[in-house]
Design a protein around this nucleic acid. Structure first.
Length: 268
DNA sequence: AAATATATCAACCGCCGGGTA
DNA sequence: TTACCCGGCGGTTGATATATT
């Protein structure tokens, strides 16, 4: 399923990774951590470019990466987040969507979207257009409306995103405990429990739709690169391997989320 | 059984933004 | 201010697997 290995004109290896290369890269990173992707292949004894190593690590070798078998909840979450970005005219940020799915990478989410979910949304939209036509409610009674107004109304009335827009925000009384549950659910080292309510998570996150575009930039933190690495003697980035790997995968996001919820009307 | 079409997904490419000298 | 480096991102490619004819 991947390109056959080959060397480009600069002697840099491309294409499929061998087991030996995987082992070398994994071993090097586990030993020295992440410090400079451009240098890592040299020190790891690989004929790869830094980018290739980074991609391989991020999408495949990283210990917390899981492959295949998307759950219904994960699918729904992807769909909702993607729709929301469309509504807000935001360029689709796969990395941000992926950050809500522990163990999933942006590349994998993107692939899954194009392979499975895209069709579904197209199908949904076609169905909705059909519904709208069949409803016959667009002629006399709304004759004074402009086309754009009509379009807007159609979107609010029929698209699945409506579900998001109408989702119930957290009540002030329950927000703290729910947030703590949320943090637990997103904890990277914990397995996703059967009780995790993905729909609630999605709705909670997306209930802030008017500011989602702005907030998302802060909400989703840099996955994986945790904490300060500057105090290392030899290799920056070593510390989080030796101590708490991936520990802050979602923590900052939850902090932001908490702050966001504090600012909601009624929470002060 | 063979040919063809379609689906899947790892990997590549080029661009962009942040950091820094 | 500018140029450069680096990491990260989204879009795309292409080889392989699977389904269909």
């Amino acid at each position: 399923m991947v390109r056959a290995p080959y060397f480009d004109k600069n002697g840099v290896k491309k294409g499929a990774w061998s087991q030996e290369e995987d082992d070398k890269l994994r071993e090097h990173i586990e030993k020295y951590g992440l410090w400079n992707w451009r240098e890592i292949p040299k020190f790891a004894g690989l004929s790869r470019c830094g980018k290739s190593c980074r991609l391989r690590w991020m999408n495949y070798l990283r210990p917390d990466v899981k492959h295949g078998n998307y759950t219904k909840e994960e699918e729904d979450l992807i769909l909702r987040l993607h729709e929301n970005m469309e509504i807000n005219c935001t360029a689709c940020r796969w990395s941000k969507i992926a950050a809500t799915l522990p163990g999933r990478t942006d590349n994998e989410v993107k692939n899954y979207w194009h392979a499975h979910l895209k069709k579904r949304t197209v199908k949904n939209q076609n169905t909705l257009v059909l519904k709208e036509k069949c409803s016959g409610s667009t002629s006399e009674s709304e004759g004074s409306q402009t086309n754009k107004e009509m379009e807007a109304k159609t979107v609010v009335s029929y698209t699945p995103s409506n579900l998001i827009l109408e989702s119930t925000p957290l009540s002030p009384e329950t927000s703290c405990s729910e947030l703590s549950n949320l943090s637990t659910d997103f904890a990277p080292k914990l397995p996703v429990s059967a009780g995790t309510n993905w729909n609630n998570i999605a709705e909670d996150v997306l209930s802030s739709v008017p500011t989602f575009d702005e907030s998302i930039g802060d909400f989703w933190t840099e996955p994986f690169v945790a904490g300060s690495a500057s105090d290392q003697d030899n290799f920056p980035g070593l510390s989080f391997y030796q101590e708490e790997p991936f520990v802050s995968y979602y923590d900052d996001g939850m902090d932001f989320y908490y702050e966001m919820m504090q600012e909601l009307p009624g929470n002060n």
